[in-house]
Design a protein around this nucleic acid. Structure first.
Lengths: 187, 187
DNA sequence: GTCTATACGACGATAGAC
DNA sequence: GTCTATCGTCGTATAGAC
C-alpha cells in the first residue's frame, strides 16, 4: 500500500465541502486541486472517471455519512420523541444553522453524470426511509409515513434555498423545530 | 427604433427558460445564442454587461411576472380561500406540476453577480410579502404571517429540489395543496 | 502516488463589416 | 441591430518524469 498524502476519507470530505458550496459546474479542477492539495493529474489517478466520478463518490459518501452519522439514532431504542430531537440537533449542525447548502441541491444541477445522479437519488431515498420509519412508529400507515418524511425533507431543503437567496436562516430553524410534529403527526 | 429580430420580452423569456433548466454556470453563451436565435455578439449588444447582466434582468423580469401574473389575485376582493386556491393553481402551472426548477434556486448558485443576487432577493421578498398579506387577513400577527409565508415558500422550493433529485412530483403537489392551510392557519 | 508540462476544445467577451 | 471572425483565458483531461 503506497502512502497517500491525503486519505480517501479526507479527500472525499474536502471534495464534498467544495461541491456543496460551489456546485458541480462551479467547482473547477483548479478549485478542486486547491481545496484538496493534490494536483490535477493526481486527482485523475484517484478518480480515473474525472470530475463526474468525484461527484458520484462524494454523493455516495455523503449519503452514507448522513445515514450513519445523522439518521442512525432514529433506529435506537430510546423514546421516539427523544430520537427525533437528537436528529434535529444533528441536522442543525450539519447545515450549520442554514448557512450551508445541501449536496442534493448543489449536485443535481449541471451534468454530474448518471452515477452521481443515482447516488443522490439513493441518498434521498435513504433519508426518506429513515424519516418514514419513525412516522410509522407514531402510527401512520406506510403511505402517510412516506408523505410526512418527504414533506419534512422538502421543508428543510426549501429553507436552505431560501437562506441562500435571502440570507434569512429563520425558516431553516423553524423547519428543524417542526420536525417532531411533522414526522409524528403531533398537531 | 431599429427593428429587433427578437423582442425584449421574448428574449428574457427564453433566457429565463434556459437559466431555469441549466442554471447560471450551466448555460453557456453558445447555449444562450442557440436558445434565443441571436449570435453572441448580438447578445452583448443587448446586454453589454454580459452573462451577469442577462441573469440580473432575467431575475428582475421573472420576479415582476411572478408578482403580476401569479400573486396578483391575492390582492383581489374575492374571498380569501378562493384567492389562495387560484394562486395554488397558477403555481402548479408555473412549475409544471413540479417538473421545472425555480429560478431562485438555479440562479443563486455560481457567480451571477451582485445585481442578479439582489434581484433574486427582491423577488423572494415580494413573494413573501404577498403570502404574508393573506396570512394577516386570516388573523395572524405580522411576525406569524411572515413565518407562514416563508414556510409555505420553502415547502414549494424544497419539493422542487426533491422532484429534480428523485423524479417524484407528489411532494410538490402536496405542498401546493397545503397552501391554504399553511397560509391561513387552518389546521 | 504525485508531480510538471501540455494538449486542445470550450468559455466569456470583443472587433469590425454590413 | 445583427452578423462573421477572432481574441485570450480557462476548462477538462493526458503524457511522461520521478
Amino acid at each position: 500500500m503506497p502512502s497517500r498524502t491525503v486519505s480517501d476519507h479526507d479527500l472525499l470530505d474536502r471534495l464534498g465541502t467544495l461541491f456543496r458550496s460551489a456546485g458541480f459546474d462551479g467547482a473547477s479542477l483548479a478549485d478542486i486541486a486547491a481545496a484538496t492539495g493534490l494536483q490535477k493529474s493526481s486527482l485523475y489517478h484517484r478518480f480515473p472517471g474525472g470530475k463526474q466520478q468525484m461527484a458520484a463518490e462524494v454523493a455516495s459518501a455523503v449519503g452514507e455519512q448522513f445515514a450513519s452519522g445523522i439518521l442512525a439514532p432514529l433506529a435506537s431504542d430510546r423514546p421516539v420523541a427523544e430520537r427525533v430531537e437528537l436528529v434535529a440537533r444533528r441536522l442543525r449542525e450539519f447545515y450549520d444553522g442554514g448557512a450551508r447548502s445541501c449536496v442534493l441541491d448543489m449536485l443535481s444541477i449541471g451534468d454530474p453524470g448518471v452515477s452521481a445522479s443515482e447516488a443522490l437519488a439513493a441518498a434521498a431515498a435513504g433519508w426518506t426511509a429513515a424519516f418514514a420509519a419513525v412516522a410509522r412508529e407514531a402510527g401512520a400507515d406506510a403511505r402517510t409515513a412516506t408523505a410526512r418524511a418527504q414533506d419534512a425533507i422538502a421543508s428543510v431543503e426549501g429553507a436552505l434555498v431560501l437562506a441562500r437567496v435571502t440570507g434569512d436562516r429563520r425558516p431553516f430553524t423553524r423547519a428543524i423545530d417542526r420536525l417532531p410534529s411533522v414526522l409524528l403527526g403531533d398537531h
